[in-house]
Amino acid sequence: MLLLDIKNLTIELETADGLIRAVDKVSLSLREGETRGLVGESGSGKSLIAKAIVGVLNSRWRVTADRFHWLGQDLLRLSPEQRRKIIGRDIAMIYQEPSRSLDPTAIIREQLEEAIPDNLLSGPWWRRSANRQKKAIGLLHKVGVREHQRVMQSYPYQLSEGICQKVMIAMAIAKNPKLLIADEPTTALESTTQAQLFRLLASFNQLKGMAVLLISHELESVARYTQKLSVLYCGQLVEAGETSQLLQAPLHPYTDALIKSVPEFQPDLAAKTPLYALPGSIPTLQHVPIGCRLGPRCPNARKECVKTPALERQQNHYFSCHFPLTTKGRR
């Protein structure tokens, strides 16, 4: 069943110099129990999309879409109150900097307990608070925090980033969400903790059937833990499909360049040869090229590229390029 179905999502910012289109007609869909990665460089609009789904964008941003469905309901047509109710029930999100996402003046116990919705607590009302505490401790154990006594009484600044992120995950899974959005959950963490967290997310996906939208700029870790992948460049969706298929046979030059830039995907690269990279750098959002935004940096660009390519489909593989790479002559 389709959980999230977004078509042509556009996010714009009104500034003194006119509208800046930070996200340009991106389509995204998620099935129940699916893990999808959303990859792109910083500034490609990944976080904006996540925030637009959860509805915590500033009022300065203007969000439009042809379709913005959650379980068949168009979120953009609902009132903010109704929308908050649905999202509060079904979607949870964790952020890049866990220690800043926790209220610095409240102890973990307070913050964790308020994340547990009332309808998940059983028993008469006078047992509620005891049950709530028991459930909070259980949640901490689930995310692999053993010393719950100390952590519950701590303020966020007294804990490491890794523990904070685990607390964030505990808060996120408290309401048994259908979808967990993880916005670069591991950027602030050490590499051993990173692996732990990814495994944790994967286990919740497998045990509870919770869909995960994993947002990151690290292609290799996203590729390892997701079934589907969407690649963004400069606010445009360049390619989407099954992760394995996409890595083996990318159709878009940007995806190709992205894969070639990761040493782990290049086992037969000789020592001391430079990694492949596209010329130039990402344009600022005020000066994006018209048409395909990759245009000026693309090795295959031709005259036609000044028109935005439509999203095309080859079986389960979507791409938006006038001149896709062919699978012929590749490894």
Binding site: V56, Y95, L102, A106
Partner: peptide, 27 residues
């Protein structure tokens, strides 16, 4: 109101009044 922990509280599904009272005012 711009801080991340307010966004977290909103994403938890708390109402505006609850977010204001529990996290906004104290900070």
């Amino acid at each position: 109101w711009e801080q991340n922990y307010i966004k977290t509280a909103q994403a938890k599904g708390l109402s505006r009044g609850q977010v204001l009272y529990r996290h906004g005012l104290r900070n």
